[in-house]
């Protein structure tokens, strides 16, 4: 994580994937991720099929390569850790370019790398083609408890507002020459974050007033989720369906 979080992952577009109802995409993504998760790591052919499926989905969604690559960077630290495994792993060794590496470690590293990359790819397709409001609606449609859905919706609604406050405070500090390099110089930053918390909490109270004024008693109203036709489900499930078939075959082999 880091500063790139400040805006969401949505990539504006009008591809067939963009037009699928959010909850069908959510289910499709979860099916894909589950299929990847259950596949034994020795079945490299299965991962090759999954990768092809993921790339195909990105192509249909017309997600630019740079956009995908920038997002995939988030898993780099874990891939770095995985790359160490063959060196520190025990057991039998295999010669790779003159280095005696742990066989077991090589398999483990490739398993972690494959699954992490495929999972990230699926998340990128989902988040890249679905607006935040629709994702929230999709969660509601999938019977996630309405309370949790609405807390999530409220969080997404105010994220940029609150992040903007913090950013402006920081800019104001920098413009007056405060450029901390050490932890013990962080007091002004922590103070501005504390002030932002107070403002956020007070904002929460005002939002509560606004909700109460419009008849809210604690039960979230129906968000009118968009219904999905059968053809939407078929499209959303088609690709993950392939991965399920592959996963079953891989488990059986």
């Amino acid at each position: 994580m880091g500063a790139e979080h400040s805006h969401a992952l949505f990539h504006h577009g009008h591809s067939p994937v963009h037009h699928l109802p959010a909850h069908t995409k959510l289910v499709g993504t979860l099916v894909f991720v589950a299929a990847v998760a259950v596949t034994p790591r020795q079945e490299l052919w299965a991962f090759a099929v999954y990768a092809a499926v993921a790339v195909f989905a990105m192509a249909v969604a017309r997600l630019p390569v740079r956009f995908v690559a920038r997002r995939a960077l988030l898993v780099l630290p874990f891939l770095g850790v995985a790359a160490l495994v063959p060196f520190i792993g025990g057991g039998e060794t295999t010669d790779v370019m003159g280095l005696a590496l742990s066989t077991e470690g090589l398999w483990a590293a490739s398993g972690i790398v494959c699954k992490a990359l495929l999972g990230t790819a699926a998340s990128i397709v989902l988040a890249g083609t679905t607006e935040q409001a629709d994702l929230v609606r999709g969660l509601a449609r999938l019977r996630v408890p309405p309370l949790l859905v609405m807390i999530t919706a409220t969080m997404l609604r105010y994220l940029e507002t609150v992040a903007g406050e913090l950013r402006r405070a920081r800019t104001a500090m920098q413009s007056r020459g405060h450029n901390p390099r050490w932890l013990w110089q962080a007091t002004p930053l922590a103070n501005s974050a504390g002030a932002t918390f107070v403002r956020s909490y007070e904002r929460g109270e005002r939002v509560h007033h606004a909700m109460a004024a419009r008849g809210f008693t604690g039960t979230p109203p129906d968000l009118n989720p968009q219904p999905a036709a059968g053809r939407h489900w078929i499209r959303a499930i088609a690709l993950p369906g392939i991965t399920v078939a592959v996963a079953i075959a891989a488990l059986a082999s």
Partner: peptide, 25 residues
């Protein structure tokens, strides 16, 4: 009431959801 800070009054994911919030309640 229409609040001074409109941000506090618009708490739903879209404007349409927000306008529907009161009548739906």
């Amino acid at each position: 009431l229409v609040f001074a800070k409109a941000d506090d009054q618009l708490f739903m994911p879209t404007v349409r959801d927000d306008v529907a919030f009161g009548p739906a309640n």
